[in-house]
Every structure is written in C-alpha cells, then in structure tokens.
C-alpha cells in the first residue's frame, strides 16, 4: 500500500464516479416513474457517443454543436423506445420489462455497428488537455470539467423536479400511477418524458465519457458500473444516485490503484470491485441507502 497516493486515487475515483452518477440518474428516473429497470442505458450512452462522432466527422460540425444536436436525437430515441417497446408491456410482470430492455440493448448494439462500424473512433477534445494541480493531486482538466458538467446536470434536474409543473407531475406519477391518472395526469406521457430525460442524461454522459476515453462499443460495458451505484443509492432516490455513483467510482479507483504489490495488482481487482460491492449491498441492505423499503416478511 502506498498511502501517499491515496488523495490522488480518491480524486480520480470521484471524477469517474461523477459519470457513473449521471448514468445512475437516468436509471433512477425511469425506475421511479415507470418501475422499469433499463438494462439498455449503457447502450443508449454508446449510441450517443457514436451519433456525436458522426456529426463531427461527416457533417464537420464543432463538438459543441454536435453535442447539442445529439441531445435532440436523445429526446427522439427516448420517446421512440418508450412508445414502441415499453408502452405495450404496461401491466406485464417484471421479467417482461427486464427482457424488453435487454432485447433493446441487443438491437442498439447491432444498430450502432450497422450504421457506424465497430472501429474505435475519437471525438474532438471538448476541453483543453492540461493538468490541474491541487497540492499533491494532479487531475486532468477534461475530467474535472466533465465532472463539473455532470454535477451541473444534476442540479438542473433537482430544480426541475422541485419547481416545474412537469417535475411535479413526474413525482406524482412516481408515487402512484392510478392516483396520478385519476387527478388528470397523463401517465403514459410522463413515462415518455422520463425516457426522454433519461436518454438525454445517458447521452450527455456518453459524450463526456467518449471525449475522454474514445468512442467505442465498450462504452456500454463501462456504463454497467452504474448498476451497483443505483442499488447502493437506492432505486428510487436521486440523491442516492449521486452518492452511489461517487462511491462506486472511488471504490473502483482505490481498489484498482492503491495496492502496490505486483501479484495483487495482477489480479485486476478494480474490474470486479463494483460488482463485489453490489453483492454486499444486496446481502446487507438490498433497498440501498435511500430506497423505499417494501416491508414484506414471511
């Protein structure tokens, strides 16, 4: 163990955790409103990265313009998915919705390769490449700014939920579908909105991630690390998504980087640390930190 490096790995972990938190937010949004856990979130993220790449490469747009346009695409994708794939399954058992999002992940995976190819691409830099130095800790500026944008996104959504009519409607639908319907809210539309927002969030995460690590089909796998984050934070909790995302990022970074022993490092424990953590959460506290406790004892 080399404790001198602790702050460095802590900071790096927090920064990657910011992106996990963003993906986790999308998952929570959909789960909260429609009780569907979206296994395809990572693939939507990957799609976003590839679409942004296509805009910059084939249309010659600047990265920021492409970013904006990709968000537009995200809204469309989210609405389409909800209308075509999940609306017909309302009222079906949980297995059906799980399988539907898994099927969706396969379709998106194939579609991305079909239209954009499977090669690794790179996006133009969104931010300059220079280190930020805070005491002993050296951080990449692009990571810091991406983290900042992720947190800004969070703030916007929290405000949206608290102060807008649509946000209020979404919170109502999350509480009880039938009650929401009976006071005149159109619950299917709220589902659509939740999917649209979740896709936007995923795609913002995707473009940020891709501008750091490149555009590739592996992005979908990276996004799976948001699952432990969501479970830890609680499936229904937006602050939980932030805390969960940051925690998972830190755990992954510390376990992967801190031990200096060569034999130990050869195990690549960082790769599975989030999933071991997820198992522990499931065993000790399946509802997560802030999730709703459904008391059901036998």
């Amino acid at each position: 163990m080399n404790w001198d490096l602790f702050p460095q790995f802590l900071a790096t972990g927090l920064l990657t955790g910011g992106i996990y938190a963003l993906i986790a937010l999308g998952l929570v949004l959909i789960y909260k409103s429609s009780r569907v856990f979206n296994f395809a979130q990572g693939h939507i993220l990957m799609l976003g990265a590839f679409v942004a790449w296509w805009f910059t490469e084939n249309l010659g747009w600047s990265i920021w313009l492409a970013f904006g346009a990709t968000i537009g695409v995200a809204v469309l994708v989210g609405l389409l998915i909800e209308r075509l794939a999940l609306r017909p399954l309302i009222g079906q058992p949980i297995l059906a919705t799980v399988m539907m999002t898994l099927a969706l992940s396969q379709v998106l995976q194939g579609a991305v390769i079909l239209f954009f190819g499977a090669n690794q691409r790179s996006l133009p830099m969104m931010f300059p490449l220079q280190p930020v130095i805070l005491g002993d800790v050296r951080l990449k500026l692009n990571l810091v700014l991406a983290f900042g944008m992720a947190m800004l996104g969070f703030l916007l959504f929290v405000l949206f939920f608290r102060y807008t009519r649509w946000g209020l409607a979404m919170r109502a639908a999350a509480e009880d579908h039938q009650l929401a319907q009976s006071v005149g809210l159109r619950v299917p539309r709220i589902f659509g909105l939740a999917w649209a927002i979740a896709s936007v969030v995923a795609i913002v995460g995707g473009v940020l991630l891709a501008s750091i690590s490149g555009v590739e089909t592996n992005l979908a796998i990276i996004a799976l690390k948001a699952f432990p984050a969501v479970l830890f934070g609680g499936l229904e909790s937006i602050p939980g998504a932030i805390i969960g995302g940051l925690t998972v990022g830190v755990i992954e970074s510390l376990v992967g980087g801190l031990p200096q022993d060569a034999a130990f490092r050869a195990l690549h424990l960082g790769d599975i640390a989030p999933y071991v953590f997820m198992l522990l959460v499931l065993l000790v506290r399946p509802d997560g930190l802030f999730g709703l406790k459904r008391i059901e004892r036998i």
């Binding site: 399954l89 079906q92 059906a96 194939g110 579609a111 390769i113 239209f115």
Partner: peptide, 29 residues
C-alpha cells in the same frame, strides 16, 4: 451499409435476435 461491411454479422445478429425477442414479448409472451 458500407460502414459495417467487416462486421455485418456482429451488427445483424443482435438486431435480428433483439427484434424477434421484442415481438415475442409483445405478441406471444
């Protein structure tokens, strides 16, 4: 789809499977 020429199978396999699964889930669960 010239982009996917080398990976046509990697592209079409998941799409066909995913769509078949979706159709079954909706029409014949």
């Amino acid at each position: 789809f010239p982009e996917a020429e080398a990976n046509m199978l990697a592209a079409l396999g998941p799409i066909v499977f995913g769509l078949a699964l979706m159709l079954f889930l909706v029409f014949e669960p």
